[in-house]
Design a protein around this nucleic acid. Structure first.
Lengths: 337, 337
DNA sequence: ACTTATTTTGCAACCGGTTGCATGAGTGCT
DNA sequence: AGCACTCATGCAACCGGTTGCAAAATAAGT
């Protein structure tokens, strides 16, 4: 059915090696041979089978793109950027959805069956066991949006979540809020923990400000909404740092339901700067995470690892900045603190 | 490095065929042989290389998941459903981003290089040339969210966009709007054309209602917002049917900017019922597209084609229903029209 | 116990490519 | 013209599996 290297060789009247060589760059082929082969190949509509060649070369150019974030719109952008960036480098993303997977061993087996050249983990909530399992299986790993530590076990690209928490805290302090709250995503996620840590440690220097904390069950609109409803029932703070924009927007929704005003009654600051945050019906003040930079840096790191698998794990940390919109009271309203 | 079939055979002291057979179901192996091999395999941590086996079996269990919709949040859900459904069937999605691809031949070559078993096209805006190109290359194709015709060239699963347009029109008629507009996505997309066709043909029976039409440059929030801004400048209708929820939400944003009220000054009805449409800050009346049913039906169709590639192209059409929220005036406000 | 039918196993060829090595063809130099 | 040297080509083995076929082992039948 589909033409093979042998077909091309026969039609061109040359050896199979000759055909193979014209399609692998760096191989030694004369100009006339190349012409001959390319003509035959074009006539037959031949293109080499990457999978077959992978048997001998050991490279499939397949990259496992692993995630469990399929309910946060920011990840559509992440997938878009990743797939495009990979394609530009001649790599193919094999998408793996870990939403209902708890055992790293299964994922490792799966990706080894397809002998992927590398794995990109794109998630802020995946337990670190997954990344380590891939690495232990000898597969180059880059964890994008993962926890950044000083001695990383695998390559990590992301933001300093602790610093992001500090940034949020400073922002609330500067605006004179005296009772503030942290509303995180799933408590077990490292991103949640770090954001909380930065937030509280920055506020620790200001004992006059009271700090509460709570956790939504997931990084989703509904979870944020439910969590804020509970907070409103229990007696709320003046302002909240939500661990993600979708949580913030869910929270805003709950606040609006009670006919409370933002930022009049409650202030909200989110994290991510997803597209929707900028919609004027939302207008969320938030901490921008540099998605595009994180993705491209991850791919760059992955490319480097494909060339040198022994490369030492590295952490790449990007700075965040606050995008001021309308869900915190303005700076000049700051109290004397 | 990673153990191969040969390693297992040697350790178990049996032939390579024996090992191969214990891992392919339906093959003839005795119970004691199976035990022996499985023990050795477990000790070595062996799992068969799907890609190598594909050489002889001709199946890679790889399915190309092709799309160019990476800016509409509804597609995150689509990807989630597709990847999960494929995984459950033991198939792997190879994600292909066609955002900047115009030549079907490139995509065909790409997917043939990886000898995918089939291709799922998930897009409402991809030109039909792509689907046909895959089919002509001998690859089973299912086009999800594609144009449904009575004599499809490839398998298509989706909604009847013409009927959806009619549904929107009837809804506006019933509410007594006298000047209505269609605000579509990209004019060239078949989904846009069909929705418009249904919309206008239904309204053709009501000459007293004036109908205008316009097209946003993309299925995106910004495009919808810009388009509505232009409409507001030029003199707007009483109600609009927007070809997609993201367009609707963009339009709502533009309307809100001008301090006009919805549904007081302008009514909006969308299409898709994306999650955000239900957020109470949006509260969009819209036509629900049964995403999950479409995805699962597509996968079912793909599975059937893998068993019988000669299967005749089939169109599967799902019904849509209106989700009434707050962006159209209530029914009892209908005029005498 | 002996023949026959059935299942299990190993051999070897093959899937679609790649690559080390040896041979053959060119090229430059004296 | 003769020699050494470089470059291009083909042969054959190999990558990690599968599978038709025949031999070996087991089960069944009398």
């Amino acid at each position: 059915m589909v033409p093979t290297l042998k077909d091309v060789a026969e039609r061109a009247g040359v050896s199979r090696s000759a055909v193979s060589r014209t399609f692998t760059d760096g191989a030694s082929v004369s100009a006339k041979m190349r012409k001959l082969v390319e003509k035959a190949a074009a006539e037959l509509g031949y293109s080499p089978n990457v999978l077959a060649s992978s048997l001998t070369t050991g490279r499939t150019k397949l990259i496992g793109l692993v995630s469990n974030n399929f309910h946060n719109p920011i990840f559509l952008e992440v997938f878009d950027l990743f797939t495009r960036a990979l394609q530009e480098k001649g790599l193919r993303p094999l998408l793996v959805n870990l939403t209902h997977e708890t055992d790293p061993a299964n994922s490792v087996r799966l990706l080894r069956q397809y002998s992927v050249d590398g794995v990109v983990v794109a998630s802020s909530t995946l337990p670190p066991g997954f990344g380590k399992a891939f690495r232990d299986a000898g597969v180059p790993v880059v964890h994008a949006f993962g926890r950044v530590t000083s001695a990383p076990q695998v390559h990590v690209v992301g933001i300093d979540n602790i610093e992001a928490g500090r940034l949020a805290a400073r922002s609330l302090i500067a605006r004179g809020y005296r009772r503030v709250g942290f509303m995180g995503g799933p408590e077990a996620a490292s991103s949640t923990q770090d954001r909380l840590k930065g937030f509280t440690s920055e506020l620790a220097t200001r004992p006059e400000i009271s700090v509460s904390q709570s956790f939504a069950s997931a990084y989703s609109f509904d979870a944020g909404r439910r969590e804020m409803q509970a907070l409103l029932d229990a007696g709320h703070a003046e302002a909240y740092f939500c661990g993600d924009d979708v949580l913030s927007i869910g929270a805003l929704s709950a606040i609006q339901d009670r006919h409370l005003s933002v930022p009049g009654d409650i202030g909200i600051i989110g994290l991510n700067d997803m597209e929707i945050a900028g919609w004027n019906s939302v207008n969320l003040t938030t901490i921008r995470q540099p998605i595009s930079e994180i993705v491209h840096s991850s791919i760059e790191l992955m490319s480097a690892m494909l060339l040198d698998p022994a490369r030492l794990p590295e952490a790449r940390i990007f700075a965040c900045n606050i995008v001021e919109r309308g869900t915190l009271r303005p700076l000049n309203a700051a109290g004397t603190g």
